[in-house]
Computed example of a mutant assay.
Amino acid sequence: MKTIQLSNFGLDNLKLVNTEKPQPGAHDVLVKIAAASFNYLDLMMIKGQYNPKLTFPYIPCSDAAGVVESIGTAVTRWKKGDRVTTHFIQEWITGSKSIPIFQSRTGLEKPGVLSEYISVSEEALIATPANLSSAEASTLPIAGLTAWTGLIDYANLKPGQTILTQGTGGVSIFALQIAKAMGVKVIALSSTADKLARLKALGADEVINYKDTPAWHKEALRLTNGKGVDAILDVVGTDSLTKSVYAVKADGFVGLVGNLSGAVVPFNIYDTVPNNATLRGISVGSRESFEAFARAIELTSLKPVIDRIFPFDATPEAYRYMEGNNFFGKIVISLN
């Protein structure tokens, strides 16, 4: 079978190679991958910024969807022909996670998904939402579930409230879509007129150009009559976290999601005192939460936003496109 492997750090070291098709164990499922989607985490892994002790050869990418090809002798959850989507933290089924559970991540401690076939535990999959193609479903495991877990499980978002989103990556666009499906007002940040117009077309109630308005937290306060927003999923990190804290209301929620500008924040803890802000790290979510998100997708007919779909053999070019940071939504690889 064909597989994308990384032989050393750097995008130039991604190669399409032929390897043996994996054989599922008793409790495993062999999945024929139809599509995979990228996350910023992929670039960090490929460049050596996340795990500099990575063992090579390495198969990148964490999110995929496809069809069950065969099952192990003890598998009860799936049958041949089922449409399935991968679950990122494979052993996190329900409740809170432990450190050992956290260390079962697809594309990190577990092999990645950029292969024609993968073998995974039957517990590490969910049923693909009926209204989505495999390409659309492949965008869900990290970006979609992070937005869902942050807003629904942790921020406890309610209709009539207000959130602020940052940029046009997967998490932020899913957050916008989830919020609008719930009847929540959205203030969206981006840096170009074109992207701001597209965010408005997706349902954003207000938009702010953060380059023209670097003190965007003050504009968010103005747009909420001084109250502040109910929740923010902060995907930027170093350059934005203090502003996120200032932009939320009393007892507001700031979900710590990404580190596009860095992970170390020169943060004064007393910045949280005036409004009693809650800051919480979000590490995607459980399979139970993922299955709830999938049901919501079917009920609301939510459709993920895909920027571009690249063929399998153009994977290096697709990662370079992601590196350019001009995409809107998710970047997908088709293996069909």
Rank of each mutant, 00 (worst) to 15 (best):
I59C: 11
V68G: 04
M45S: 09
E91H: 15
Q49G: 10
P52R: 06
A34Q: 12
F38T: 10
G66P: 04
T94F: 07
S70W: 03
F38S: 12
K80S: 10
I89V: 15
Y50I: 01
A64T: 05
A36W: 03
T76H: 10
C61S: 13
G81Y: 09
N39S: 10
Q49F: 07
K53R: 13
L30Q: 10
L30Y: 12
R77W: 02
K47N: 15
L30G: 12
G81L: 12
V67P: 03
C61E: 03
A34V: 01
V31P: 05
I33N: 01
F56Q: 05
Q90H: 04
A35R: 03
S70P: 00
M44Y: 14
M45F: 14
A65F: 07
K79M: 10
D42Y: 13
Q49T: 00
P52T: 08
E69V: 00
P52W: 05
A35V: 09
R77Q: 06
L30C: 09
V84N: 10
L54Y: 04
L41W: 03
A64S: 13
A34L: 04
V68P: 03
F88K: 02
I33A: 06
V29W: 01
Q90N: 08
L30T: 08
I89T: 13
A35G: 10
I59Y: 02
K53F: 12
Q90G: 04
D82E: 13
A74K: 14
D42L: 12
M44S: 09
V31S: 01
